[in-house]
Nucleic acid binder design. Structure first.
Lengths: 239, 239
DNA sequence: CGACACCTTGAAGAGGTTCAAGAAATGTGG
DNA sequence: CCACATTTCTTGAACCTCTTCAAGGTGTCG
């Protein structure tokens, strides 16, 4: 895999508002361009980085779809997130200068490589960038709180409903449909993320179909009743 | 509750190595002292900050023990972490300038108040501080990955074993016993953190006692067989 | 077109929850 | 300092959700 060395600019990237700070002065914007060293293509199924690998850079996803996951010696495996265009990946590597999870492309993808030392250097000078980096990390912490809530207190239907709502919401923010989506991951990967077995994911999809909440044809999902999904997530059981 | 305004210095704090960067030059150390504005005492049961509250500062725990938790409108509740001396709390607030969880003192506590704008300002000048802030946030992200693995793939015994090992390990790093600890939280709070009901936590403790792995008298726990706990966490099931 | 990966569905079983009752510890006010 | 109220913890029994095991179906890619 040869990392393709295409020099590119954030300043005319249409994802800028997703992965970079907004409201920059022109001269700051020029400096931000220095953050992105190169772009790199990652084939479906290939790893962007893997557990144990030396940490050098954060990556902004330009196109494609990733999963991050951790695997333990004893064979356990946990998907810790799914990432799409405009999202930043690789934050786990900062603490120990080595990555602690794998990032796998679930479809052909392209990322902007942002060497972290350059980010640190530049964010000492451009306050907006510094603040942006902090917010990105904090956002990831808050997102994970949400996943903990899901894994710790929700039942299968609630988990899958929350998962679908979260996916369409993020896709919608990127200009895609509010009601239709194509899953880039397998039932098993969804299950891993949601703390369920793939059979349970499949059964729960089937139940949603029976109830007229969604249409499912393999990985193609059409949401027929968003409100019903929201009710499933918010209502019931409590504690 | 009157926030006690005692001006203090990191430079002679024995927790420095836990919450501040190491290997600073003397002049940098002096500057770091500027980060801590005041200290604040928090009574057992009181909140350091709460969901929705304006974010202004990070807090370094000097003494005492906290839990952080999120509560949803529909009555769900999830403990997202337990924090002890030397740990930093409040990172969730950075993204939206408001806290998204509650931080509750589980015993009388004292924290160092570190206004975040001051942290940002200073970390533009002191590279070691900048790097330290990044590492702290990344560490929290990695910790949460571990919790996701626990919640997503472990059974009750494995969760409790992992929980106990994590607690003693952190306590030991602070000079306490490797084998004895006092739980500062209730069974219900442990359960919330581990995605279990309090009865299950209680039963699992009882099982560990039967198996001669620990001694439990209410909140006082003595670990008799650390290796057994490790085996419980690492071995079995897989998939 | 055939091999392989992925998905669905059924039936049985296990692990954890729920409900309930009682015991132990803790805190409070007289 | 003791009595009482309250919180916390333990344990049992029934139940339920999700998992496990198994088999067959569907889709995809070389």
């Amino acid at each position: 895999m040869n990392p393709q060395a295409i020099k590119v600019a954030c300043s005319n990237c249409n994802l800028r508002e997703l992965c970079m700070p907004m409201g920059l002065k022109p001269e700051e914007l020029d400096r931000i361009d220095e953050v992105v060293a190169t772009r790199r293509k990652v084939k479906r199924g290939a790893m962007l980085f893997s557990n144990g690998e030396k940490f050098t850079s954060l990556y902004a996803i330009r196109t494609g779809f990733f999963k991050t996951c951790i695997a333990t010696e004893d064979g356990r495996d946990q998907v810790t997130g799914f990432q799409m265009a405009g999202e930043i990946i690789g934050l786990d590597g900062i603490v120990h200068d080595h990555h602690t999870c794998d990032a796998v492309a679930l479809e052909d993808a392209e990322v902007c490589v942002m060497p972290f030392d350059r980010i640190e250097e530049l964010s000492r000078e451009v306050t907006a960038l510094q603040n942006h980096v902090h917010k990105i990390m904090s956002r990831e912490i808050v997102r994970e709180h949400g996943v903990m809530l899901l894994l710790g207190s929700m039942r299968a239907e609630e988990r899958l409903a929350a998962f679908l709502l979260n996916l369409v919401q993020r896709l919608h923010a990127r200009g895609f449909s509010q009601s239709e989506l194509i899953l880039r991951m397998t039932r098993e990967e969804i299950g891993s993320y949601l703390g369920l077995k793939l059979e349970t994911v499949s059964r729960t999809f089937s139940k949603f179909v029976e109830d007229g909440i969604v249409e499912v044809k393999q990985r193609h999902v059409r949401i027929l009743d968003t409100e019903a999904l929201k009710r499933i997530v918010n209502n019931q059981s409590c504690q």
